[in-house]
């Protein structure tokens, strides 16, 4: 009996140790997330933020969805609150800079965006920040098909040209932007200008030959992402040839190709014509039978 008691007590002890270890390890199993803030400004007008949240699983980064983040401008306070966002399946959340922080926005030329995650059942808390300087980009297209982008940074109350910024000069296409020539980027000089020669003649534009030129700064440490567009008539005129409303195999029933109608109805008339004749043939046989009976 004593032996039995010892065994049961020992088993209970081991079970308790295992359970306590298990509950302890559950508390420390929360994953870590990394937050990245990206700043964008399109055509020097609309500023917005894209926040990306990732975690490392088996040595690989994986997007994390459903993460609620609080975003602030410069400091974590009620007056500088930008938005509360939740990441989507790509691990991304987007928000514009709201009018509520306009006063703070105009008060200085450099800003720090703050993102904070309080943590949840799966992941521990995390924070990130991004500091950007106010900048703008202009684009100009000369008649000799030279494209010039000029980058300015706001210092105090004035815009001053910036030297040494990499600018992408490209043409906006449906799926992606196509560089204007073989050079991927152009660097601004002391006047803040970066120029490139347009070498995409005969590229299809719209019905009038218009194409959209793009000058952009991508993932710059100081300024973030800036994009500006300009429409120029340098493309080839392209008139879309639509088969909609034409007779095709994939059109509606009243737009069937004539050759198909001809083939199908010819076969139908021939075969069903024969069948009708054969049915009449039965009546003839019946008539013959009646005449014999009479």
């Amino acid at each position: 009996m004593k032996l039995l008691n010892k065994i049961s007590n020992g088993s209970l002890l081991i079970l308790l140790i295992l359970l306590s270890h298990s509950s302890f390890s559950q508390g420390t199993e929360k994953g870590d997330v990394s937050i990245a803030i990206n700043y964008f400004i399109n055509n020097n007008q609309v500023s917005y933020l894209v926040v990306k949240v990732k975690t490392k699983v088996d040595g690989r980064f994986k997007n994390v969805d459903g993460v609620a983040l609080k975003l602030f401008l410069d400091k974590d306070s009620a007056g500088t609150f930008i938005a509360k966002v939740v990441t989507n399946k790509k691990g991304e959340a987007t928000t514009t800079i709201p009018p509520s922080v306009e006063k703070q926005w105009h008060s200085q030329v450099k800003h720090t965006f703050l993102a904070s995650f309080d943590g949840d059942k799966k992941y521990g808390p995390a924070k990130a920040d991004l500091t950007v300087a106010k900048a703008k980009i202009l684009i100009d297209a000369a008649s000799d098909k030279t494209i010039t982008a000029t980058v300015f940074e706001k210092k105090d109350a004035t815009w001053v040209p910036v030297k040494g910024v990499d600018v992408v000069l490209a043409i906006r296409r449906t799926a992606a932007d196509l560089p204007i020539n073989d050079k991927p980027t152009f660097t601004t000089d002391s006047t803040g200008k970066a120029s490139g020669e347009f070498k995409r003649d005969h590229i299809p534009g719209d019905a009038k030959g218009n194409i959209t030129l793009v000058a952009k700064i991508v993932d710059n440490d100081q300024y973030g992402n800036l994009v500006i567009e300009k429409s120029v008539p340098w493309g080839a005129k392209f008139t879309s040839v639509s088969t909609f409303n034409k007779r095709t195999l994939f059109a509606t029933r009243n737009k069937a190709p004539v050759w198909l109608l001809f083939v199908v109805y010819s076969i139908l008339i021939a075969v069903w014509g024969i069948l009708v004749i054969l049915v009449f043939n039965l009546f003839k046989i019946k008539k013959l039978g009646k005449s014999v009976a009479n």
């Binding site: 075969v271 024969i274 069948l275 004749i277 054969l278 043939n281 039965l282 003839k284 046989i285 019946k286 013959l288 039978g289 009646k290 014999v292 009976a293």
Partner: peptide, 27 residues
Amino acid sequence: SFWKGTPEQFKLSDKAINILCVSIIPV
């Protein structure tokens, strides 16, 4: 009941069967 087995009936029937045999293959 109309089938009396007259030569004329056989002629029509044979012709019909032959036409059917030819038609049914492509169909």
